[in-house]
Nucleic acid binder design. Structure first.
Lengths: 331, 331
DNA sequence: CTTTCGACTGTATACGTATGCATTCGATGC
DNA sequence: GCATCGAATGCATACGTATACAGTCGAAAG
């Protein structure tokens, strides 16, 4: 291992001067900086993040806590978040929240991480409280937990859902089913509440038996659609908690031989790239997930660098994107 | 920040004893261990990975170098690899190889990382040589570079491609087109060579104009299919470098109104979960990507813990999975 | 010519943990 | 009852970098 001391020796200066020169400290003369830089290049030296982290008291590693890495949704979160963090000089470390007492606590608590983005918070999670108690900065992404305050990046589903319901109700749908997300997530709950209240404005309501709940994954949509569409009198429209659920439902319908949208309309939420494919053409509620992911990166970095700034909550608008999985109900 | 010294004070022992007790060193008495553990819990202490890494001389962080995080292929790599690494007590850090001189070098070189998995190596990449020169352990995943030896995890495409070609040629295809991956990747090259040599055994060859190349992404397949299918006399079968390319081709065909497989058959390579969807049903060459990803995790950890072990090369077999995007060519 | 100041660089030390070595203490053997 | 040994623990220090502080040196001001 090549250390700053080796560089110092070669450049004929002291170790601290190397440290300063390489971080472009104005107190070091240009001539010395050049000598040091040349020596560093000659030896192939680069500063040890570990030593640096120990000395500075914090690292430049941000943890992203998710439950389900297979879920394609998170691929579209990770990529832009990672790029933005890198741009800001930070690294992204993945953490799966397998259990409350699991590695999250261990990895997050010892200050291996300077901050955390929570992307799969449930409203009853203990993690936010733990992080707060230990003074680890964190940001809610997409989902929040009311119990503990923190910066957040979320979507306001109202505009999208309102527009969506206006359109499908206008085109004649009355019997509406839903496969919502888990009740213990803020997103699941918020989307459900919004749907119910907007339906109410239209003088409609969801029949209890037409409402299902489950994790935001393919299997939920796949199984849910089977349940709903196997009925004697299935709903003419199925609202899904998100796009991945809708993709499950769509494929379930295809497998059952139920024509979409002729026999049933299906709607998602997220507008993932897959949803726009010619073979899919999913009608859905869209928002800027890329920008959201980058904003989460910016917020956590800002919080890390200025822990006492006032809380920031960025909320992104949503809109309805009508594609080919919705139409008037069959007569 | 709570340190081992705080725990030591509370437990009435010295700091080194805390260090030993918590790592279950047999030289510490059970009674002391208990006192230390209790104190640690009481204070909510967990050992600092940073301090530990500095003292031990290496971290427990493995870097995964990829170029294109949006690509769903990598989602299916990251998830199992991450789980396996976590099981082994290591962490996964994502690194995008934006440029040869970019952050890869910086992050990898200073011993922030104890090892690296290269998932998007090109045959002409300088990174393997650099890693070797600095003594950073690494493993090739999926792709290799001949110039520098290292452990590797790869797929042998031959069985799958052989079976695939036997079947489609048997069903009558003669005019075969291809959208291969980049020539400067071992996987792209190997799959192409295998296809050509097996075709040769059948007395067939690819027409020069029916062969395209491009990055392993959706756009390559989308654009490539458009090029091939816009012809007066398009191929009756299009072989794609991987599934993501095939999905692009499939959607391109759908958008052009070209029926699959009635007018053109399309085949991929990877068998991603998406390929099995009822709405997709892509015929493809399958192998155990999950297991491969875990094996890469195991190999890099083994290499890190025993740098001088003899090189290991794990090769996974492939097989053809016929689904709904292939049939006899139209008469 | 002396003083003062500022620009630059070096010295000493801190960060949190791990480990070789020294030390203590009680038990065992003679 | 003394020597010996081993188990248990403490002491000192190392890891690589960053930073407060002290020091040096030359130039400018008096």
């Amino acid at each position: 291992m090549i250390t700053s001391r080796d560089v110092a020796r070669l450049a004929g200066v002291s170790q601290p001067t190397v440290s300063r020169a390489l971080r472009d400290d104005p107190k070091v003369s240009e001539a010395t900086k050049k000598r040091v830089r040349d020596a560093a290049v000659a030896l192939g030296y680069s500063t040890s993040p570990i030593g640096r982290a120990l000395a500075v008291g914090r690292s430049t590693r941000v943890g992203l806590v998710v439950t389900d890495l297979e879920n394609q949704f998170y691929g579209h979160v990770i990529a832009p978040m990672h790029r933005e963090l890198e741009r800001l000089g930070y690294e992204l470390v993945l953490i799966t929240e397998s259990s409350e007492s699991g590695p999250v606590t261990e990895h997050v608590m010892g200050h291996g991480l300077c901050g955390v983005v929570l992307a799969t918070t449930t409203v009853d999670s203990l993690l936010p409280a733990r992080l707060r108690d230990r003074g680890v900065p964190f940001v809610y992404f997409n989902r929040t937990a009311q119990s503990v305050q923190a910066d957040s990046v979320t979507v306001d589903p109202e505009a999208g859902i309102r527009e969506l319901l206006r359109e499908v109700i206008g085109s004649g749908h009355r019997r509406i089913g839903a496969i919502f997300g888990p009740r213990n997530t803020s997103t699941g709950e918020q989307r459900e509440n919004t749907v119910r209240s907007v339906l109410d404005e239209h003088g409609l309501a969801l029949a209890h038996r037409d409402v299902l709940h489950g994790p935001f994954d393919f299997a939920t949509g796949f199984g849910g659609a089977r349940t709903l569409l196997d009925r004697e009198d299935p709903p003419t429209l199925v609202l899904c908690g998100n796009d991945v659920v809708a993709l499950g439902a769509l494929n379930s319908a295809a497998e059952m031989g139920v024509a979409v949208p002729a026999e049933v309309s299906i709607v998602g939420f997220d507008d993932l790239p897959t949803s726009g494919w010619a073979l899919i053409r999913l009608s859905t509620v869209a928002y800027d997930l890329d920008e959201m992911s980058r904003e989460a990166a910016r917020l956590i970095v800002a919080r890390v660098e200025e822990p006492d700034a006032r809380p920031r909550h960025t909320i992104y608008p949503s809109r309805y994107v009508a594609r080919a999985t919705t139409s008037s109900p069959r007569a």
